[in-house]
C-alpha cells in the first residue's frame, strides 16, 4: 500500500518495538477509533487518530491518514504490510517519562484540585464501572471493590510492594470494558504512586517491583490489550493525558480541561483511570495530613 503517512506522535515502547522487530506485526483487532497490531507473542501497538492520548505503545496518526488506513479494511490476523519502520522516526517519539524538576503544590492546592476533579467527575463521567466508588454509589463491581481493596491505604503508606500488588491483583480483569474497569483503576493508582514517589524524591524501586508483579499477573488474568496497557507501568511511563492530569493536579491549578481529556478515553476507561488516580491521591493526602 502506498500511502503518505503522517505520524503525529509515537510512544517510546512503540518506537523500540517497531525498530527492533524482525517480523512484521499482524492485525489484532480493528475498532472505529483504534487499530491494534500484535508483535511477537503478545506485544500490542495501538494506532489511533489525532485527539487520542498517546501512550508508550501507541502511534498517533493524523485524522485523514487514520481514515485511509481504516478504509483499507484490515482484518484480524492479517499481516501488516506497511513500512512501519519508515513511520517510526525518532522525531515523533514523545517524552512520557516523569519530569523531575517541578515543585509540588502544597497539600491544600492538591486537595483543592482533587475536589475540583471529583466535582467534575460527579457530573460528567461514565460511572458504569468502578468510578462510582468515589461517590459511594454501588453497582455490582464496586460492591466487590470495597472488600478487595480493604487496607490498601496501609500498604501504600507502608510501601509494601508485595501486599500492595496482591491487593491490586485482586481486581485485575474485574468489570466491564475491553480493558476491564479494575485494570484501568490499577493504571490510575500506579500512575499516582510513580509520580508522587519520584517527585517527592522517594525511591520508586519498591513500586517498580509491585508494577512488575501486577503486570506478570495480568498476563493471565485479563485481556491482552489490558495486559499491554499495564505492562507500560513497569517503567513508570503513562499516556500523555494521564501525565498532563497528574502534573496539573500536583503542580497546577486548572485541572478541569485536563480531566476532561482523560474522561474521553474509551467508554468507561477514562473515568476508571481517573477514579484510580483520585482514590490514590486521597489516600496520600490523608497520609500527609
Amino acid at each position: 500500500m502506498d500511502y503518505n503517512i503522517t505520524v503525529e506522535k509515537l510512544g517510546k515502547a512503540a518506537y523500540d518495538l517497531i525498530c527492533g522487530a524482525k517480523e512484521p506485526p499482524t492485525v489484532h483487532s480493528v475498532f472505529t477509533n483504534a487499530i491494534n497490531l500484535k508483535y511477537q507473542e503478545d506485544y500490542i501497538i495501538t494506532i489511533l487518530p489525532q485527539n487520542h492520548s498517546c501512550g508508550t505503545q501507541t502511534i498517533i496518526l493524523s485524522e485523514a491518514t487514520f481514515k485511509i488506513l481504516r478504509s483499507s479494511r484490515l482484518q484480524a490476523g492479517e499481516s501488516f504490510e506497511m513500512d512501519l519502520k519508515e513511520w517510526a522516526k525518532e522525531d515523533y517519539v514523545i517524552d512520557l517519562t516523569i519530569p523531575d524538576k517541578l515543585y509540588l503544590n502544597n497539600e491544600l492546592s492538591i486537595t483543592n484540585n482533587i475536589k475540583c476533579c471529583l466535582d467534575e467527575m460527579k457530573c460528567s463521567s461514565n460511572q458504569d464501572g468502578l468510578a462510582s466508588c468515589l461517590f459511594g454509589r454501588e453497582n455490582i463491581y464496586t460492591k466487590l471493590l470495597s472488600t478487595k481493596l480493604s487496607q490498601i491505604d496501609l500498604h501504600i503508606i507502608e510501601q509494601d510492594e508485595s501486599k500492595l500488588s496482591d491487593k491490586l491483583c485482586s481486581i485485575l480483569g474485574l468489570g466491564p470494558g475491553l480493558t476491564p474497569s479494575g485494570d484501568d483503576f490499577i493504571y490510575g493508582v500506579l500512575s499516582v504512586l510513580f509520580y508522587y514517589n519520584r517527585l517527592s524524591g522517594k525511591s520508586s524501586d519498591w513500586l517498580s517491583l509491585a508494577a512488575a508483579r501486577i503486570s506478570n499477573a495480568a498476563r493471565n488474568l485479563t485481556t491482552v490489550i489490558s495486559y499491554n496497557m499495564l505492562r507500560s507501568c513497569i517503567n513508570g511511563e503513562f499516556s500523555e493525558y494521564i501525565k498532563n492530569l497528574l502534573i496539573g493536579i500536583l503542580y497546577g491549578n486548572n485541572v478541569e480541561p485536563l480531566l476532561k481529556k482523560v474522561l474521553q478515553i474509551g467508554s468507561s476507561s477514562g473515568a476508571d483511570i481517573a477514579a484510580g488516580i483520585l482514590y490514590c491521591l486521597k489516600i496520600l493526602m490523608i497520609k500527609e495530613e
Binding site: I140, Y141, K143, L144, S170, I171, L172, G173, L174, G175, P176, G177, L178, P180, G182, L221, T222, T223
Partner: peptide, 17 residues
C-alpha cells in the same frame, strides 16, 4: 445484564450475581 470479558475476577463476579 452483565457484558464483560471472561476474566477470572469477572467470573467471580458473575458467580456472586
Amino acid at each position: 445484564a452483565v457484558v464483560v470479558m471472561g476474566t477470572e475476577h469477572n467470573k467471580e463476579l458473575l458467580d456472586n450475581v
